[in-house]
Computed example of a mutant assay.
Amino acid sequence: MTTFDWEKAFIFTPYSTQEGIEEQLGVNFNDPSDIDWRDDIYLLVYLNDDKVVQYIEVDRQGADFTIGEKKHLTPSDDLITIERY
């Protein structure tokens, strides 16, 4: 459903820190969403050639998002589970 090339996508939970995001991504990324202070969104960050090419703020809307035990998503393995609470 994307219109851009990507190799990896990472999903970050509410209250994720800037340092934790950069550590997981392995690149510098100035989080414009301020997710470290928020509990109303998840942050989905796409990388291509080790560069951030897109990010999306996903409204929680009473649900939790997970990619299971995976470290990141790839175009061939991009399943996200949504659980209502």
Rank of each mutant, 00 (worst) to 15 (best):
P75Q: 08
G26C: 11
V45G: 03
A63H: 05
F65W: 11
V58Y: 05
H72Q: 05
E22G: 00
I67G: 09
K51M: 14
E23K: 04
P75F: 03
Q24C: 03
L73V: 04
D49K: 15
K51L: 10
V27D: 12
V52D: 10
D78W: 07
R60N: 10
M1W: 05
R38I: 03
F4M: 03
D40H: 04
E22M: 00
E23R: 02
E69I: 02
I56Q: 08
Q18W: 06
T2F: 06
F65C: 08
H72F: 13
T3Q: 11
L47A: 14
D49S: 15
N28I: 10
T17K: 14
I21M: 12
H72A: 09
I82N: 08
R60H: 09
N28A: 12
Q61H: 13
K51G: 04
R84P: 00
D77S: 03
A63K: 04
A9P: 01
I56A: 04
V58E: 12
R38H: 03
A63P: 00
T3K: 12
Q61A: 14
S16L: 11
D34Y: 11
E19W: 00
K51T: 10
D64Y: 10
E69D: 11
A9M: 06
L79F: 15
T13G: 13
Y85P: 02
V27Q: 14
T3N: 12
T74C: 03
D77I: 00
Q54N: 15
L44P: 01
G68E: 06
S33V: 13
P75T: 07
W6E: 01
Y85C: 12
F29H: 10
G62R: 10
L73I: 07
R84M: 07
G68L: 08
T66Q: 12
L44I: 05
M1T: 10
Y46F: 14
T74E: 02
I11H: 02
D40R: 02
T17R: 13
A9N: 02
E23F: 00
R38M: 02
T3E: 09
D59G: 07
P14N: 14
K70I: 04
E22T: 00
Q24L: 08
I11E: 05
G68R: 07
F12Q: 02
V52A: 09
V53S: 05
D34L: 12
D50I: 02
T74A: 03
T81S: 15
Y55T: 01
I80T: 08
N30C: 13
I41V: 09
S33P: 07
W6R: 01
I67N: 08
L43P: 00
Y46D: 03
N48L: 06
T17P: 05
I11L: 14
D39C: 05
G20I: 03
D39I: 05
E69P: 00
E7D: 15
I41L: 06
N48M: 11
T13A: 15
H72I: 02
T2S: 13
F65L: 14
D31Q: 12
E7Q: 15
I11W: 07
S33D: 11
N30E: 15
